[in-house]
């Protein structure tokens, strides 16, 4: 007897759960040859607001964990991703129409990228912070602290693109709301399943699928978002208007030039979303 296909419902990932869009809307995702692949949720501004709320409530717990523990959690994402590599390779081939070898390269690079950031978690403070020589009887030192809730527009690449923008943000203790690649949203939701099952607390990463031009402006003007990563905004007009909206609440904005995601990432992917805290301690008499 033939068996019915079990089709997957692609939903959003907000606060550790997988809700449908509050608007009830969906959009059609096609594969590389223009054939129907699946329906994805079309997130609205209210989904973005809910996601920011989830990210804000997760921030306290996540940012106060030890850097070592955060590193372990990020490493755990890599482990679980590695265990599901066949699924990701198959999805990448279907959505992007790339060869098996190319798909393997992307999954390899994504796992390696997570491991690389996991290693950075408890080392970044030594590199960008430290003791400052001051002209007085003070022990003066600076430490990096997470900025808060970071809204991220993920680049086009379905898996490596998402990992490249999310891992650096959460490794340092921020929480994030990610607008997944508009062209390839499905892999982002599958990656969300990986994060939901790898000790990442709910709300630390929130994934929205939909139109970046619709959601990004709301995140940019949202007063409870502290920073903005515009890596995935390739329309310069949208980028400028979003940057202007972000200025209203003095957000940190990262608008990088085109980068090769397979190359080793620059350190400023992490440092752009950090604040420096400097402490003066009197010493001796």
């Amino acid at each position: 007897m033939s068996r019915l296909d079990v089709k997957k419902t692609y939903k959003l990932y907000v606060g550790g759960a997988f809700p449908r869009s509050e608007s009830g809307r969906t959009f059609v995702v096609e594969d590389a040859k223009g054939r129907f692949l699946a329906n994805a949720s079309l997130a609205s501004r209210k989904d973005a607001r809910d996601a920011v709320k989830a990210a804000r409530s997760a921030f306290g717990g996540w940012s106060s964990r030890t850097a070592y523990n955060r590193g372990q959690v990020v490493y755990r994402i890599a482990e679980v991703l590695e265990g599901r590599r066949e699924q990701f390779e198959a999805e990448l081939r279907a959505t992007e129409g790339i060869t098996a070898a190319k798909a393997r390269t992307y999954v390899d690079a994504s796992v390696d990228r997570l491991v690389w950031y996991a290693g950075w978690a408890d080392k970044l403070a030594q590199v960008v912070g430290g003791a400052n020589p001051v002209a007085g009887p003070y022990f003066n030192h600076s430490t990096p602290e997470p900025t808060g809730v970071v809204a991220v527009v993920a680049p086009r690449g379905p898996l490596l693109g998402l990992v490249s923008v999310v891992a650096p943000v959460i490794t340092t203790g921020n929480t994030c709301v990610v607008i997944a690649s508009e062209e390839h949203p499905l892999t982002a939701i599958t990656l969300a399943e990986v994060m939901a099952t790898s000790d990442v607390p709910g709300g630390v990463v929130n994934v929205l699928t939909g139109k970046r031009a619709e959601i990004a402006p709301w995140l940019a003007s949202h007063a409870d978002v502290n920073a903005l990563d515009l890596t995935g905004v390739d329309d310069p007009e949208l980028a400028t208007s979003v940057e202007q909206a972000a200025a209203g609440t003095l957000k940190r904005v990262r608008r990088p030039a085109e980068e090769d995601l397979l190359a080793p990432p620059p350190l400023d992917r992490m440092t752009d979303f950090l604040e420096t805290k400097t402490v003066w301690h009197p010493m001796g008499i």
Binding site: V52, R56, W218, S221, H222, A223, D224, A245
Partner: peptide, 9 residues
């Protein structure tokens, strides 16, 4: 204001 506010305000 037309944009979402936050608990900092």
């Amino acid at each position: 204001t037309g944009h979402y506010s936050g608990p900092d305000y």
